[in-house]
Design a protein around this nucleic acid. Structure first.
Lengths: 227, 227
DNA sequence: ATAGCCGGGTGGTGA
DNA sequence: TCACCACCCGGCTAT
């Protein structure tokens, strides 16, 4: 099976920035291409890199918003990376509030994600992590779940597992285990047994029973990822 | 003037930060209140202010994500303001990529809006501009705290429960559920069934089986606590 | 809900 | 079968 290669497409003008080199050193395949929008493309993400000075001066020319508008229409996920000493440049401004207004407009109205890096190395790190994240198959946001016990005792594990059940917290988990004796007994119990012997309410028992018996099926997002 | 007063609600703990004073000097009405989450509330926006040092250190403790989880569930529009010299603190990190990974997770997965300010004055400027923006376009009055309901899907719960088992992570949880069909089938399975039908190794199967069948007893620390 | 590292489990290989 | 070993995977840890 052909492993999916972690890859980034970089605009040809970024060749001299040193960033493609840093990415390759991290084991990422970088393809140089002429991009019509953005400087880097990672799967569904487009990344525009701007130096702090360019960014600040472009606040006044309005050029930024022309680009921003075009970009927002083309890409659903757009990341703006501002690279360099923002504070220094910002300090020279007569009216700093213009800066915050622009940042807010980009973030709230156009839904841009803005990141601040100090130098090319940090920008490369950001792109590296983004690429890793994109290509890593990972289950989406999980329900609130008690963390696994760090090298804990048996009863820690037992409690953690039972607490994983919906609507079951530490108190109920303790009571269930004390009543039914083992994790297996709890997960084997019928709705009625949960309610009576486990001494929990009918609503909770029903909810738990339905989840235990639910037929597993990959959800949509994961199907898409697995092709 | 009978204009609608531009107002910000600030948490009482922010009283000593100097920011409410700066805002009032800018002609903004600041009301001090005990907020359950966040430090400032401006119409539908909740703002959490965090010092750079707190932000960086909280990457490791997980405290950040505990708060983030609560917040993301409660507010539709959430702004995170990181105040101070981020670079200095970031330079002390052994693995800077953790920082970028966290930033990306917050921005892309939780849809947080993250802003970086240098000091209280800049934070006040940011809040000032945000307040002006919000009240300039007085569209239909939105609820102060827009709820964002987001419940996990059934398969999320199933995976989370199975991942609670020792030595079982996302990959193996998926395999087990796909093979055995339901959570109950997994927890009902014998060691042999886990190994063969669940397609995991004998060592893991043994460890799981032993935990499932272990008789529950409070451990030492808890016994001591309960007297 | 991070990323990196490490120790141990798995399963395939060849003898 | 068995010993070996390369990869995969989950869990710990970081400041």
């Amino acid at each position: 099976m052909a492993m999916t290669r972690i890859g980034i497409v970089a605009d040809t003008r970024e060749a001299t920035s040193g960033i493609p080199g840093l990415l390759r050193k991290g084991g990422i395949a970088v393809e140089m291409k002429r991009l019509d929008v953005g400087d880097y493309v990672i799967a569904q993400y487009a990344v525009e890199r701007k130096t702090a000075r360019d960014f600040i001066t472009s606040l006044y020319t309005g050029r930024l918003f022309d680009q921003a508008d075009r970009i927002a229409k083309s890409y659903k996920n757009f990341l703006l990376v501002v690279e360099g000493e923002t504070q220094e440049t910002l300090a020279g401004l007569k009216n700093p509030r213009v800066y915050w207004g622009t940042i807010l407009a980009l973030a709230l109205n156009l839904d841009f994600k803005i990141f601040f890096t100090f130098d090319q190395e940090q920008t490369a790190d950001l792109l590296y992590v983004l690429a890793k994240r994109v290509y890593r198959r990972r289950t989406a946001t999980k329900p609130l779940l008690a963390r696994k016990p760090r090298m804990g005792t048996t009863s820690d594990w037992q409690l953690a597992i039972v607490e994983g059940l919906p609507t079951i917290g530490p108190k109920l988990a303790e009571r269930l285990l004390a009543s039914l004796g083992s994790v297996r007994n709890i997960f084997r119990a019928s709705r009625l047994e949960l309610a009576l012997m486990g001494r929990i309410g009918h609503a909770r028992a029903k909810q738990i029973q339905e989840l235990l018996d639910a037929r597993y099926r990959r959800d949509i997002s994961e199907q898409a990822r697995l092709g």
